[in-house]
Amino acid sequence: TTFEIRVGDLRITLHNADEEEIRWAEEALRRGIHADEILRTLEERRR
């Protein structure tokens, strides 16, 4: 599944994310964390 998060002009697309990952990514985007860093962190958490 694919889920797109939008916060203002910012956007990130997550693939195969669970609800916790989606909530975490949305909050991180709101705090101004760059999408590349969010994706990198999620990848590390999945390992």
Rank of each mutant, 00 (worst) to 15 (best):
T1E: 15
I12L: 13
R31E: 09
L14A: 01
V7M: 05
R6A: 15
E44H: 10
E20H: 13
D36R: 05
I33H: 07
T13H: 05
D9Y: 02
R11L: 14
H34I: 11
E37H: 08
E21S: 10
L42T: 04
L10W: 04
R23T: 09
A28C: 11
R46K: 12
R11W: 09
N16T: 03
E43T: 08
E43Y: 06
A17Y: 02
L42H: 04
W24G: 01
L29R: 01
I12Y: 06
G8Y: 01
R47V: 12
E19S: 12
R40E: 11
A25K: 00
E44C: 12
E4I: 03
R47K: 12
L14E: 00
R40I: 12
T41F: 11
E37K: 08
A25Y: 02
I38N: 00
G32D: 04
T13D: 03
I22M: 06
A25G: 03
W24M: 08
E26C: 07
G32V: 02
T13I: 09
F3R: 15
I33A: 07
R47W: 06
I33C: 09
R30P: 01
N16F: 10
L42E: 00
A35Q: 09
E26A: 09
I38S: 00
V7C: 09
R31D: 12
T1P: 15
R6G: 13
G8V: 01
R11P: 01
I38M: 09
R30V: 11
E19H: 12
N16M: 06
R6Q: 15
D18Y: 09
E21L: 08
H15F: 11
H34E: 13
E21D: 13
L42D: 01
R11A: 14
R6S: 14
R31C: 08
R23S: 08
A25M: 03
L42V: 13
D18E: 09
L10G: 03
H34D: 13
E26N: 03
N16P: 02
E19P: 10
A28I: 04
L39T: 06
R47H: 12
T2R: 13
G32L: 06
E44Y: 06
T13N: 03
R40H: 12
I5S: 02
D9G: 04
A28E: 10
A17F: 04
E37Q: 08
I22V: 09
N16L: 04
H15A: 04
T2G: 15
L10K: 14
R45M: 13
G32N: 07
I22D: 00
R30G: 07
E37L: 11
W24V: 04
A35L: 05
T13A: 02
D18T: 14
E4H: 02
L10D: 08
R40D: 10
R40L: 11
E4N: 00
R31P: 01
A25Q: 00
R6M: 15
